[in-house]
Amino acid sequence: MPHVQTITLPPGAGTGWHYHPGRVDVVVLSGTLTRTLHDGRTVVSRAGESLVEEAGPRHVHQGRNLGTDPVVLIASYAAPQGRPLAVPVPEPAWSRSAPADG
């Protein structure tokens, strides 16, 4: 059975770098979520949009609220039994040398 939770990121907040042991389906209820993906791409998702975060350590990413309004998300996690919903990881070396976006 999936685990569903509401996540709120105030302006300036972020999730930190992490990956998910299982797939996560997300709906952005309000605000604008900016994600940096494992391959360096930046993806912006706005209120009313949905996204999928694939499972596994090859899909490291972070989410940030670079806007002035709170980002509110509904996330449905398909984590395997006994596994955490997210696994924190160190910031990738390539990210520390990348120019700031925003």
Rank of each mutant, 00 (worst) to 15 (best):
P2M: 08
P2A: 10
Q5L: 15
I7T: 13
T8S: 15
T8V: 15
P10D: 13
A13D: 13
G16N: 02
H18D: 00
H18I: 00
Y19K: 00
Y19V: 00
G22E: 01
G22F: 02
G22I: 02
L29I: 12
S30T: 11
S30L: 03
T32S: 14
T32L: 09
L33V: 12
L37D: 06
L37R: 05
H38S: 14
H38R: 06
H38C: 06
D39A: 04
D39W: 10
D39Q: 06
G40T: 05
R41E: 13
V43H: 12
V43C: 12
V43S: 10
V43F: 10
S45V: 09
S45G: 09
A47C: 08
G48F: 07
G48K: 03
E49L: 04
S50N: 03
L51I: 04
L51H: 05
E53Q: 03
E53V: 03
A55Y: 02
G56S: 01
G56K: 00
P57F: 04
V60I: 04
Q62A: 05
Q62C: 08
Q62D: 05
G63N: 01
R64W: 10
T68R: 14
T68V: 14
D69H: 07
P70V: 03
V71F: 01
V72M: 02
V72S: 03
I74Y: 00
I74V: 08
I74S: 04
Y77H: 12
A78L: 11
A79H: 04
A79V: 06
A79E: 04
G82W: 08
G82R: 09
G82M: 08
R83K: 14
R83T: 13
R83A: 15
P84S: 13
L85V: 11
L85F: 10
A86F: 07
V87N: 10
P88G: 11
P88M: 13
V89L: 11
P90T: 13
P90M: 14
A93Q: 14
W94N: 03
W94R: 03
W94E: 06
W94M: 03
S95E: 10
S95Q: 09
R96T: 15
A100C: 11
A100P: 15
A100V: 15
D101S: 11
